[in-house]
Computed example of a mutant assay.
Amino acid sequence: MKLSISHRLLAVVALGAALLAPAHAVRIKEIAAVQGVRSNQLTGYGLVVGLDGTGDQTTQMPYTTQSVANYLQQLGITLPDNKASQLQLKNVAAVIVTAQLPAFAQPGQMVDINVSSMGNAKSLKGGTLIATPLRGADGEIYALAQGNLVIGGAGASAGGSKVQINHLSAGRVPNGAQVERAVATPLNEGDSVNLGLKAADFETARRVAAAINSKLGGSSARALDGRTVQVQAPTDANARVSFIAQLEEITLVQPIPSARVVINARTGSVVLNQAVTLGPCAVAHGNLSITISSTPVISQPAPLSRGQTVVAEQASIQIKQEPGILIQVPNAPLLSDVVRALNALGATPQDLLAILQAIEASGALHAELEVI
C-alpha cells in the first residue's frame, strides 16, 4: 500500500510534533547533565583467530602476517624472516576494537566491545579475539579486551553463488573488556556543580535556575549562559551525590523551543516543530522532465557491393516543462495550518525542499531552516 505525498508529510510532521510537543513538565535529568560526568572512547588493534578459512588474504594484507609474527615473538616463538613473510593465515583477521568507558568505571568492571574487520576477511563468525589493549585519547591503556565474537548474520557460498544475511565482518563481545584503569572525574571538586543543557536555550537555562531556587530556596542556582547553570553544592562526597540526585528529579515547565525546520537532503525527510509558523505568500513550482530515447538504425549494403552491415543508434531528446500554477499560501499560525498549507502545494518531498528554502528566503517562513 503506497501512501500519498500528503499522508507522508503528515506522518513526518506528526512525528516532529510528538517529539517537540507544546510546553510540558520535564525533569532536569531529561534536559541537562552534570558537566564532567561523561564517557570516554577507547580503541585498539587486535587479531581474531579461529576463523573457518574466512580470514584475511595475507598476500594482500601484510600487516596481518606481521602482527601474528610479533604476537608469536611475545610468546617466545621466533620465526626466521624468510618464513614469517610466507605465512598463509586463512584463519586470522586483523580487526579494530572499540569500546565506551562509562563514567565512574572502576578497575575490574566489564564493558561491551565492538570488533570490526580492517582487512579483506570474508567473515568473523566463530572467531575469538585475543588479548587486545584498549587505549584512550592520551595513549594510556584503560582496558583489556578478549573473548568470542557474536556475529548477527549468516552466509554461505558454493559454485560461484553466494547468499548473505546481515553483516559478517563486524560483531560484538558482550562484557568483552575489563577495565584496568579508572578515569578521574571532577565531580567532587569545588563548591558547586555545573549543569549542561542538551540544547542551548537562554529561556530554558533561566527556567532551570528558577526551578532549582524555588525547590531549594535561596539563590543557589544561576544561569551562566544559554547552556550552563551553576548550582552551589555540598563539599562532602556523600552529601553531594544525594544533592545531585535531588537536583535531577526537580521538574519544570519546559518552554517551546525556537521554531525550526529540519531537512534531510539525502532522504527528503522534512520535520517541523510546534513553533513553526507561515506568513502569507504565493508559490509557483513547475516540473521539468527530460526524456532521452535511443533507436537502433541498421544500414544494409547493396547486393554484391562487398559492403558490411552497420548498426548505428539514433538518439532523440525531448524536454517537457509543466506550467507552474501560482498557489496562494494563507497565514498559518499553528502547526496544523502549516501542514495543511504545504500539503495544498501537492509537491513531492524533494520539491518541498526547494520550496521551503524559497519561502524562508522570502521571509514568509518564520523558522530556522536547517539542512542535515
Results as ranks from 00 to 15, higher is better:
Ala354Glu: 14
Thr348Phe: 06
Leu369Cys: 02
Leu369Asp: 00
Glu368Ala: 10
Ala367Gln: 06
Ala341Asp: 10
Glu360Met: 02
Ala361Cys: 01
Ala332Ile: 07
Gln328Tyr: 08
Gln357Leu: 10
Leu352Tyr: 04
Arg340Ser: 15
Leu335Ala: 05
Leu365Pro: 01
Ala358Gln: 12
Ile355His: 03
Leu326Asp: 07
Val338Glu: 03
Asn331Ile: 09
Leu335Trp: 03
Glu368Pro: 02
Pro333Glu: 10
Leu335Thr: 01
Leu342Ala: 08
Gln357Cys: 01
Leu365Met: 07
Leu352Val: 02
Val329Trp: 08
Asp351Leu: 03
Ala358His: 05
Ala347Asn: 14
Ala358Asn: 07
Glu360Pro: 01
Val329Thr: 11
Gly346Thr: 10
Leu334Ser: 14
Glu370Ile: 07
Pro330Arg: 03
Gln357His: 11
Leu335Ser: 02
Gln328Val: 13
Leu356Ala: 00
His366Tyr: 12
Glu360Asp: 15
Asp337Glu: 13
Pro349Lys: 01
Ile359Met: 14
Asp351Pro: 00
Ser362Leu: 06
Asp337Gly: 11
Glu368Thr: 08
Ala344Tyr: 10
Asn343Tyr: 03
Ala347Thr: 12
Ala364Asp: 08
Val329Tyr: 09
Glu370Tyr: 11
Gly363Tyr: 10
Ser362Trp: 06
Leu356Phe: 01
Gln350Asp: 15
Arg340Leu: 15
Val339Leu: 15
Ser362Gln: 10
Ala347Gln: 14
Asn331Ser: 15
Thr348Met: 07
Leu369Phe: 00
Ala354Leu: 11
Pro349Ile: 00
Leu342Trp: 02
Leu353Tyr: 06
Ile359Cys: 07
Ala367Thr: 01
Leu369Asn: 02
Ser336Arg: 08
Thr348Leu: 03
Leu334Val: 14
Leu369Tyr: 00
Ala364Phe: 03
Ala347Met: 15
Leu326Glu: 12
Leu353Cys: 11
Ala332His: 02
Asp351His: 05
Val339Tyr: 00
Leu326Ser: 10
Pro330Cys: 08
Ile355Glu: 06
Ala347Glu: 15
Ala347Trp: 09
Leu342Pro: 02
Ala361Pro: 04
Leu356His: 01
Ala354Tyr: 10
Pro349Tyr: 05
Ala341Phe: 04
Val339Met: 13
Leu326Thr: 08
Leu342Lys: 01
Gln350Phe: 14
Leu334Asp: 12
Glu370Ala: 11
Asn343Gln: 14
Glu368Cys: 02
Val338Phe: 04
Pro349Ser: 05
Glu368Val: 00
Ala341Ile: 04
Ala347Pro: 00
Glu370Asn: 12
Gly363Met: 06
Leu356Arg: 02
Leu334Gln: 11
His366Phe: 12
Leu369Pro: 00
Asn331Thr: 11
Ile359Thr: 05
Val329Arg: 05
Glu360Gly: 13
Asn343Met: 08
Leu356Tyr: 00
Ala341Thr: 05
Leu353Asp: 15
Leu326Phe: 09
Thr348Ala: 09
Ser336Thr: 15
Thr348Gln: 09
Asn343Lys: 04
Gln357Lys: 14
Ala354Met: 11
Leu369Ile: 01
Val329Gly: 10
Gln357Phe: 02
Ser336Asn: 13
Ala341His: 05
Ala332Phe: 06
Leu342Cys: 06
Val329Pro: 02
Val339Phe: 07
Thr348Asn: 09
Asn331His: 12
Ile327Ser: 14
Asn331Val: 13
Ala347Ser: 14
Leu334Gly: 06
Ile359Gly: 07
Ala332Gln: 04
Pro349Leu: 05
Leu365Cys: 09
Gln328Gly: 08
Gly346Asp: 11
Asn343Phe: 03
Pro333Leu: 02
Ile359His: 07
Gln328Ser: 13
Asp337Cys: 04
Leu335Lys: 01
